[in-house]
Design a protein around this nucleic acid. Structure first.
Lengths: 151, 151
DNA sequence: CGTCTTGGTAGCATGTTGCAACCGTCGTGA
DNA sequence: TCACGACGGTTGCAACATGCTACCAAGACG
């Protein structure tokens, strides 16, 4: 079950995101979904996670609106788990984590899976945090306004 | 302790990142560090986390090279936890999670903390995943090459 | 039908988290 | 210099989550 009040500073969007995803397994499930996995068995084989845990995570992700459970596309009576628009919106999160991992946890030349542009087979640009007027921002260039009512 | 082999598909950078951060508390610690928190007590008050958990997480983050434990800047004998370059490189991850949370978990007009450009006080641009030649990419525009040795 | 695959559930051992109490050191004012 | 509170933890324990294994029902498939 997703504990909806695990973090009480929930006016922070980061905390809500974190709470919504639930745990790290869930994020890897989402990664596999971006990768094309749809069936229970695919996720299970890919992740090596226990089936009861996978059941719980999939259910939580569906309940949270990240995945949807739909009839299988191959005509069988089984179900498939596909990303909702909300789930697809996690794409930058996954890409950011992937790029951070590539830069920090692999020796030069060490093999690793790679996310590429389908059209040209080239790697992606590193994500950039930009200001409204297009300047590249470092962490020090930003600050947090604690509460606001304007969107 | 950080279990270095929690996910066995560790040729995937996402899995390594996830494993390195350890758990969600750690990510919120990093968020607070970006926000200016440095001292044990600051993190503890901000997060409301139990002190033994915070101790373990801080230690893991230091061991993982995300934070560094340095002498306090105010001249006291206490220590402070500051982001290393590797930790600062998590900035896009935090920003991505923040933007996802803002878009999906707040009603229009509902107050929430906001990350702004320090220079003009304006909100940031949404992160964009770009191809090498600058096209905006959706998840469907990308694919994963399972293994590669070229960097 | 008979058998294999799929997608689970149930029970139990173990690991992790959270809470509360305790403790040594540091800082500070009198 | 000494008392007292704040800081930064550690320890023990109860509760909960995780992971493993066994089991199982329905669907696919010959």
């Amino acid at each position: 079950m997703v504990s909806r009040t695990r973090f009480d500073d929930s006016e922070c969007p980061v905390a809500r995101s974190v709470d919504a995803i639930g745990d790290w397994w869930s994020l890897l499930i989402v990664r596999d979904a971006f990768d094309g996995s749809r069936r229970f068995g695919e996720f299970q084989r890919s992740l090596g996670v226990a089936k009861n845990i996978l059941t719980a995570r999939l259910r939580a992700l569906v309940a949270g609106g990240v995945l949807a459970s739909v009839p299988a596309s191959d005509g069988s009576a089984y179900r498939e788990y596909v990303l909702t628009p909300k789930g697809k919106a996690l794409f930058p999160v996954i890409v950011a984590l992937r790029q951070w991992g590539e830069q920090n946890f692999f020796a030069p030349g060490e093999p690793h899976s790679q996310l590429v542009d389908r059209r040209h087979g080239q790697r992606l640009r590193p994500l950039e945090v930009l200001s409204r007027d297009g300047r590249r921002l470092d962490p020090d260039d930003t600050t947090v306004h604690k509460i606001t009512t304007t969107r």
